[in-house]
Amino acid sequence: MSETILEVKNLRTTFRTKAGDVHAVDGISYSITKGRTLGIVGESGCGKSVTSFSIMGLLENPGEITGGEILFKGEKISHLKDEQLLKYRGQHMAMIFQEPMTALNPVIRIGEQINEQFIKHRPHLSSKEVKEHSIEMLNLVGIPSPEERYKSYPHQLSGGMRQRALIAMALSCDPEFLIADEPTTALDVTIQAQILDLIQDLQNRLGMAVQFITHDLGVISEVADDILVMYAGRVCEQGSADEIFKKPSHPYTHALLNSIPKLGHKVHRLPTIEGTVPSIANRPSGCQFKNRCEFATDICGEKQPEFTEISSTHKWLATTLGARDR
């Protein structure tokens, strides 16, 4: 058993709004071990990004962690103050963001933005060494003529190049844990593939644990070792990638998989999941998915769903019988 890098236990993240407390993340648990990739899937608004921000300590007011804990290599970090988290951020854990167009500061040169991290976490380096390291990172992520790009401003780079620069920045201090929050969503398909390859390649080289967030199951099938399916702030199914793709149990997982277009299958219309995620401010009782579930019965509204284990690694949040059994 390899080393556990990140462990999330019963995490609950609450936004204290005027309309009352809203639990954007409501009691989720998982762990990631060294060198493995956990894919978190779910549609918009199900709490994927809030989970990542909770780990990184980047929650914006009025959001805060109100329950459970987050352990980084066995050390509890969920209660730490912003200043105490600074040494983790960028050094031990790093994050790549969704929008390469806006995630880089438009008025600061690419090189300087990478330098910052070395200056913060590697204070013993001279300014010349810092520059060398930054250029080396740009080279590592496959940016052509890195010396020139070092002096470029973000707007002088294409979307794919910017995402590469962001990856260079995130990985500059050899983090043990990387959160990739939909890193390919804003890119076109050919660039997507390149970026995915790059992340996987760097993961193999540096042995990082990766938490990969996406709503694209195609992407997940390529990168993830384990998968966590989230719905309305909760985990509705988790297991290894094989288990999830071969034996989806929760009706939501099933529906998600059904909505991927398949080569060679002629369909009149692509199946979709009708309706939307229930508003987090107004969660129904019982199963959260019942209003959109084709298998829903009366019991779904009454009984709180519980985790059913299929194997030691595979479990799902069940009220009625799983879609698998139908």
């Binding site: 963001f97 008025v107 920045m169």
Partner: peptide, 24 residues
């Protein structure tokens, strides 16, 4: 977003505000 990126790098509050937010 770039302010969040800067924070994710571990840069402390005052430099984030002055260098990243204020310059823009």
């Amino acid at each position: 977003d770039y302010v969040r990126t800067a924070r994710s790098k571990g840069i402390s509050r005052i430099p984030v505000i002055m260098k990243h937010a204020f310059r823009n």
